[in-house]
Nucleic acid binder design. Structure first.
Lengths: 356, 356
DNA sequence: CTGAAAGCGCTAACAT
DNA sequence: ATGTTAGCGCTTTCAG
C-alpha cells in the first residue's frame, strides 16, 4: 500500500512548551505583536525553527472568525484582457467563498501610478490581507506599494512586475520569453523588410520586457530584418488603430507586426481594410474575441496568451502562503505562455470557465 | 471600494436551534450516522435546507484531527503518461500537506479490472475519503467501484470514465472531442488513402470515445479517406511498434496515423526508420519525451495533451466537495485539450512544475 | 434515541 | 511582559 509515516505537525502548544512560555506569548511573536521581550521572542523563534512549526491557516481564520481577503486592483479602460482578468477573479471568488477566502475587485484608472497608489493607500490591514496589483513601473506605484506593505498589507504584482519595489512576489508569464517567441515566429514568417512594433506603453514592465526579448532574438537570428517602432497605443482600440495607420504610412511594405499590448480590436479592424498584398504577418497578445476573430479570418497569425485564470489562481496561492507566514520566501508557480495558431484554437475554446 | 454584504454563513448551532435539537443530533444526520428518529432527521434536513447550511470542511477536519485523504490508483506499466500523472500527484501532495490534505498513490497493474477492484477493496473509510481511479470499463471495475462506494469511500474516475458505475464524477478531457480534433487535422493533412489507428485497448472508455469521435468526423467530412484498424498496442512501446510494422506491411502507402493511446516511444522509433516518402502524417496523445522528440524531428505532426496536472487538481477539488457534502452533485471543472504542433511546443515546455 | 461537554489549533480579551 | 481563559465551527465520547 502507500501509507506513509505521519510526522505529527507541531502546534502552538508544542512551541509554547518548548520555549517555556504561554500560548499568548507564542501568538504575539507569531503575529509580530508588541509586548514581548526580545530575548523571549528569540526563544520562541528558536522553538519554531527547531520544531518546524507552521501555523494552520484554517484554524487561524476560524479563531478570528475572519475570511482571508485578497483585493485585486485592476486597471480598467476598454481593455478586453483586463475584463477577462476581472472575470476570472469573480468566478474563482464564488468558489472560494465557502472556504473562508474573499476576493474583492477594485477598478483603477490605467497607466496611472498615482491613482493606483491612492487605491492602495485606502486598503487597511483590518479588511485586506493581500493586495494584488497590475501596476505601471513608476515612482508613485513604488511608493504606494512601499507604504501599503509597511501598513501590514502584503502586495503582489500581477501580469507586470514592479522590480525593486516592496512587492512580495510577481505572478505572471516570462515576458522576455514571450517577446523572444514572437520574434522567433515572425523572423521565420518574414524573410526581409521591417517588422512593426506597437506597445501599450513602455512604462509597463511587461511591455518593456517583451520588446527587449523581441529585439534580442531578432538581432541574433534575423539580422536582416529591421524593427519599426515601437509606437505606443496605450492599450486602447482607437489609438492602436491610429498607430497602425501611421506605421503603414511610413512603411507601406511592412512585412510583420508584433502587437505587444492590447487594443487588438482596433488593430484587427485596421488590418481588415488592407489589400491582401500589403497584409503583414501578425502576432498579438491575449485570446479575446478580437484576436480569435483575427486568427479565424487569417488577419492574425499567432496569439500569445497568458492564461489569466491561472494567474489569478497563482496569486491566491501566494496570498495564502503569505497569510500563513508573512516572512515566507515565495516561489509562485510559473505561468505557461499559451501559443495559439488558427489550427489549435479549438483546444483553447473548449476550455471551461472562460466566458464573454 | 468593493465591500460587499457578508451573509453570515449558517453554522451547526443555527441548524440545531432551528430544528429544536442538539448539536450532536445535527452532526448525526449530517454524517448519516444511525440513532436518529426519521422524523427528527427530517426536521434537521429541513433546517439545513432553509438555512442553506454547508459544513465548514476545515473546521470538520480540525475537530477530527484528521487529514482529507485522497488515494490515486494509477495503472503502472511502462507508460510515460501515467508516470506524469503520478508525478503530478506527488508534487501537489507536497504543497497540500500543510492544508490537511493527504494524497496517496497506489500502483495497480494496467488493463486489469480485477486487480483494480482488489486495490479498491483494500481502501477503508477510516483512512481514505476518496479514491481516484484510472480504470478499464469492465465488470470487475464496476463491481469494485460499487462496493467501495457502499463502504463509504467516494470514487472518482480520472482520464477514462466508467459510465453507469457508482463513481461520483469523471475528471478528464472530452475524449470524443479529442478524436474529432485528430480527424479534423489528419483529414486536412491527408488528401487520400488510408489513416491507420492504433489504440491501447478498446476496453478503455477513453480510447473507445476517441475512436468514435475520429470515425464520426472522418465519415462526415473526409469520406474518401479510409480507416485501417484499430489495432491494439496495449499502451506498450514494443507492442505498439509491432502494430505499426503490421500496419505498414498491409498498407505500404499509409497516409496518416492516429495513435489513440500510449506506446509513443515505440511508435516514433518505428517511424524513424521509414524512408521519407513513406512517412505518414502522425497525431499522437500526451506530451512526453518521446512525443516532444517526434515533434521536433518532424516524425510527429501534432500532439494532443490532457494536462495531467490540471486533472489532478480538478480531482482533488471534487474530493473536497464530496467531503463537504457526500450528496452534492458535482460538476468537475472541464479539462482543456492541449493541441501542440512543433511551432507552439515552446509554450508547453516553459510550463512550470513538470519534471523528469 | 438524544443531549452536554470537552477538545482540535489558533486567537483575543482579560487578568496578573 | 506574560499568562489564563473562552471561544471559532465541528466532532465525539459519555451520560441520560
Amino acid at each position: 500500500m502507500a501509507d506513509d509515516d505521519l510526522p505529527k505537525r507541531a502546534t502552538v502548544h508544542d512551541v509554547a512548551r518548548a520555549a517555556g512560555v504561554s500560548l499568548a506569548t507564542v501568538d504575539r511573536v507569531l503575529n509580530g505583536r508588541p509586548g514581548v521581550r526580545p530575548e523571549t521572542a528569540e526563544r520562541v523563534a528558536a522553538a519554531i525553527g527547531t520544531l518546524d512549526f507552521r501555523r494552520d491557516l484554517s484554524a487561524s481564520l476560524l479563531a478570528r472568525s475572519r475570511d482571508l481577503t485578497v483585493t485585486f486592483l485592476i486597471p480598467r479602460g476598454h481593455n478586453a484582457f483586463m475584463e477577462r482578468l476581472a472575470d476570472a477573479v469573480r468566478r474563482q471568488g464564488r468558489g472560494l467563498a465557502r472556504a473562508r477566502v474573499r476576493l474583492d475587485v477594485v477598478d483603477v484608472p490605467p497607466f496611472d501610478g498615482r491613482a493606483l497608489a491612492d487605491a492602495l493607500d485606502a486598503l487597511q490591514p483590518r479588511d485586506c490581507d493581500c493586495a494584488v496589483v497590475v501596476a505601471p513601473d513608476d515612482r508613485w506605484a513604488h511608493a504606494g506599494i512601499e507604504r501599503t506593505s509597511r501598513r501590514g498589507v502584503a502586495v503582489v504584482t500581477l501580469v507586470s512586475d514592479v522590480p525593486g519595489s516592496a512587492r512580495r512576489a510577481f505572478v505572471g508569464i516570462d515576458n522576455v520569453a514571450a517577446g523572444r517567441t514572437a520574434a522567433s515566429l515572425l523572423g521565420r514568417f518574414c524573410h526581409e523588410g521591417a517588422i512593426g512594433l506597437i506597445a501599450g506603453s513602455q512604462a509597463l514592465q511587461d511591455h518593456a520586457e517583451r520588446i527587449a526579448g523581441f529585439r534580442e532574438v531578432l538581432a541574433a537570428e534575423f539580422p536582416t530584418i529591421a524593427i519599426a517602432g515601437p509606437l505606443e497605443g496605450r492599450d486602447d482600440d482607437r489609438l492602436t488603430g491610429d498607430r497602425l495607420a501611421e506605421l503603414l504610412d511610413r512603411y507601406p511594405r511592412l512585412a510583420g507586426l508584433y502587437s505587444v499590448g492590447a487594443g487588438t480590436a482596433g488593430l484587427v479592424a485596421g488590418l481588415a481594410v488592407l489589400p491582401d498584398a500589403r497584409r503583414p504577418r501578425v502576432v498579438v497578445h491575449e485570446l479575446t474575441d478580437a484576436s480569435r476573430g483575427g486568427l479565424r479570418t487569417g488577419l492574425v497569425d499567432v496569439v500569445l496568451d497568458q492564461h489569466p485564470d491561472r494567474e489569478v489562481a497563482a496569486a491566491i496561492g501566494v496570498a495564502r502562503a503569505l497569510a500563513g507566514d508573512p516572512n515566507a520566501r515565495i516561489r509562485p508557480e510559473p505561468i505557461e505562455l499559451g501559443v495559439y495558431l488558427r489550427d489549435n484554437l479549438a483546444g483553447a475554446e473548449s476550455a471551461g470557465g472562460e466566458r464573454e
